[in-house]
Design a protein around this nucleic acid. Sequence first.
RNA 1: GGUCUCUUAGCUCAGCUGGAUAGAGCAACGGUUUUCUAAACCGUAGGUCGAAGGUUCGAGUCCUUCAGGGACUACCA
Length: 592
Amino acid sequence: MIQDLIKAQLSYAIQQLFGLILKPEDVVIEKTASNFEGDFTYVVFPLLKISRKNPEQTAQAIGDFLLQHFPELGTFQVVKGFLNLSIKPQFWLQFLQQQVSNQNFGMAEPNSKEAVLVEYSSPNTNKPLHLGHIRNNLLGYAVAAILKANGNKVYTCNLVNDRGIHICKSMYAWLQFGNNETPESSGLKGDHLVGKYYVIFDKQYKQEIKDLIASGLTEEDAAKQAPSILAAQDLLVKWEAGDEPTIAVWKMMNAWVYKGFEHTYQKLGVQFDQFYYESNTYLLGKEIVQEGLAKEVFFKKENGSVWIDLSAEGLDQKLVLRADGTSVYITQDLGTAELKYNDFNCNRSIYVVGNEQEYHFKVLQQIASKLEKPYAAGIYHLSYGMVELPHGKMKSREGTVVDADELIDEMEHTAKETTQALGKMEGESEDTLNQLYHTIGMGALKYYLLKVDPRKKMLFNPEESIDFQGNTGPFIQYTHARIKSILRLVGNQSADFQIKNVILSKVEKELLAKLYQYPLIIAEAGNDMSPGLLCNYIYELAKIYSLFYHDHPIMKEENLDQKAFRVSACMLTAHVIKSGFLLLGIQVPEKM
RNA sequence: GGUCUCUUAGCUCAGCUGGAUAGAGCAACGGUUUUCUAAACCGUAGGUCGAAGGUUCGAGUCCUUCAGGGACUACCA
C-alpha cells in the first residue's frame, strides 16, 4: 500500500529533520480534500513545537526532504499547515496494469483468518416476514460475505423460533376457526396463512379483554384470564408434554411456514449453512441451567424458579428458568450457543439481531462468561436499528407492517415499468426481461436498506417508495451496464498500453485512486461490520466513473495507448462494481 | 426512576481513529443528447451540525450539563 510507504517516508523525514522518533504506524495521513491538489495530506500542526518553525516552513521542509528521498512522489503543495502530496501518475497507471486482470482484486487470501459464525434472519414461525426482517437478512448476508472477502472462514446459520406461546396462538385460532384451511385449499402462501390466524387470535383476545374489563376486572387480570390466552397456554403445556395431536398440528403449520419462508429467502437470495430450531435447543439450555446451579452461578428461589444475579455488572437479576420448569428465551439461547460452538468451533460468533435485544445479549454474554464457557468472549451482538414507518414502528398484530413478499413484488413491478418506459430493452426475451426486473428491483431495495449505517434506525416511507435515480442501486447497476456496453464494442481488443504514452487527466487519476482504495474499504467494512461503507464507496466510484464517461470518449480516442488505458480503467471499474455489489448480495446486469 | 441510544439542508442519509470553505441523493429551479445507454452529466438555491459550557493549535467528531425523540428495564420472544 502506498499509504504505508508514505508513512514510512514521513517517519524518516521527521526523524532526520527534527530528531523526533515517530513510528510509521503512528504517522497519520489522510486523503487530500477534493478541492485541493494532491492525493494524500499530512498535517504538520502537531510538529510545530519541535520544528520551531511556522506551519508553512515546517511543511515545506518535509516536502523538500521527501522529494529527495521518495521516488513515487511527484510534487507537493503546502497550504498553511497542510502538506499535500501528489503521487506520480506512473504509480497509478502501474497499479491499473497490475490489477486489471486480477479476478480477486480486493479479496484477502481465503481462509487466512479465523473462522466466524454469523447468525441471522432468525424468524418466528407465527407470521410472514416483513421489512424489518428484510433488513436483518440483507445485513446478515452482506456481513458474512464481507467477512469472507476479508479472509475469514465464514459459516452462516438461522435460528428458527419455532416454539412458544406465539405459535400456539396461531394454532389455537386455526383450530377454532380454520375449518381445515390449508395453503392448497386457500391458495395462500403458508406463512401468510399462519399469520392470518395470528391476527385473528389477537383480535379475539383483545375483544375478550375488553369484555372482561367491562364486567369489572382490571386490565392486568383480564389479560391473564381471557379464555383464548388460557387456551393458548394450555396448548403450550401440551406441546411441551409431547401431546400427539398438538404436535401434529404444530408440525403441519410450521411446515407451511417453512415452505413460505423458503420462497421469500430464495427471492432475497440468502442462504444458510445450518438451521437451528429452538424446539431442539431449549432442552440443552435446561441442562446448562443445571450446570449453572451446580457451579453456583445461578440460584433457586422458593417457588423453584432459577435466577442469576447480575446486579454487580450493572444488570438486574434475571430469570433463566420458570417456576414450572419451562424454559424462557435466554434458556434457549444458552443451549443454542453451546450447540453452535460444538458444531462449528468458532471463537467468534456474530448475532445479527435488532437493538431492542441489547440487554438480552449482555445478559447472555455475562452468563456464558460466568459459566466459563470458551465462547463467551466471542459472542458479538451486531445490533441494528429498527426500520420505522412515517407513523412509527411496525407492529405485526396491528397490521402496520410492510410485508416482505408484497414489497419485493412491488419493486419488481416498478423496475418493469421504468424499464419499459425507457424502452431500451425491446426485443429481449421474456426470460431475460423478468430476470432483469428482479435484478433491478432487488438492487434498488437492497442498496436502499444497506446503505445506511446498520446501527442506526432508519425510516421507510412507502408513499415515496424507493428511487431508481441518484444514490441508488439501479444507478450503480446502470453504470455497470454502460461499461459493459463499451467493452462489447471494443471486443477482445487488447487493453495493453505503454505508460509513457498516456496522459492522466484529473478525473482519470481520481478514478484510479478510487479503485486503488477498494481493498482498504473491504477491510474497513469487515472491521466495522458495516456494509454501508461499501455502498458509499461503490457509489462514489460510480459517480467518478460517470464523470469520466462523460468527459472522455473511448471509441473515438486516436492515441491507442490512451484508448487502451481507458479500456483498462473501464474493465477494472466494472469488476470492482460487480465484485463489491456481490458482497452486498446485489446482482449487476450486462444491459439495462 | 435506572441503563443505553439518537438529534447534520424542506425530506432521506454520508462525514474514517479530532484537521482545510460540513458533503451526497431526492424534492425545487436552470442548462446539456447529429458523438461509447440522459436510470446520466453540469449549474443555482438550500446549514448558527438540537442548546450551552469545556478540553485542544484546531471540535459535526472527545468530555459535562440541558432539551427533545427512541429502545430496554416481564416467570414475552
